[in-house]
Nucleic acid binder design. Sequence first.
DNA 1: TTGACATGCAACCTTTTAGTTGCCTATTAT
DNA 2: ATAATAGGCAACTAAAAGGTTGCATGTCAA
Lengths: 104, 104
Amino acid sequence: MDEVFKALADASRRSLLDRLHARNGQTLGDLCDGLAMTRQAVTKHLGILEAANLVSTIRHGREKLHYLNPVPIHQIGERWIKKFERGRLAALSELKRQLEKRDE
Amino acid sequence: MDEVFKALADASRRSLLDRLHARNGQTLGDLCDGLAMTRQAVTKHLGILEAANLVSTIRHGREKLHYLNPVPIHQIGERWIKKFERGRLAALSELKRQLEKRDE
DNA sequence: TTGACATGCAACCTTTTAGTTGCCTATTAT
DNA sequence: ATAATAGGCAACTAAAAGGTTGCATGTCAA
């Protein structure tokens, strides 16, 4: 889980996931297009995404195809974010109450 | 949004949010208890959480009370994670299909 | 079979991050 | 008043992160 959070912390990596979400199965070259980064930097980012199991790859001849794996993202939603949903309104109203108490 | 992702990337900070979720309105001292870190380190983490608007604080005499703000977490879920839900099964089945094609 | 193309590997540099130590300030209780 | 308590500030360190350059390798097309 920690690896996934860390992988998602970088905007370039989130953008790579966005691009794979828009079109799955892209090659490294595809994913480099239009980015202000060297190919090697992109490779490293993809490596981190792969280590976090957010991306799976298969070699196809001299090309490497990248596929989005949405499962870990889904798990973050289910196992972590949902926990904070419960009591969201309660927490907010308590916060508001406390902030207002400041002016007493 | 980037600040929130970065703030959530650290396990110590997520643990602080967990603790505030369990009991809201804790002081700095409360939040330091049982952590293998100096108070100053915790202060820094809380500062990052506050900058990301995940925590709000109010001084109460010599104490500083910390309140969880669940809104940014909720937004990550709504604006980012949900996007990857759509087509989750589709992406998975395509991935599976491609992985199986490897053995042809 | 040779050149172009797609990717891999490794060393290096710079900035950020996580944490520390040491000292200072403000509030409260005795 | 004064001592203990709660927290703030700043300088420093070590390690990790993000990125680069240079070169090597494997695959495809002419």
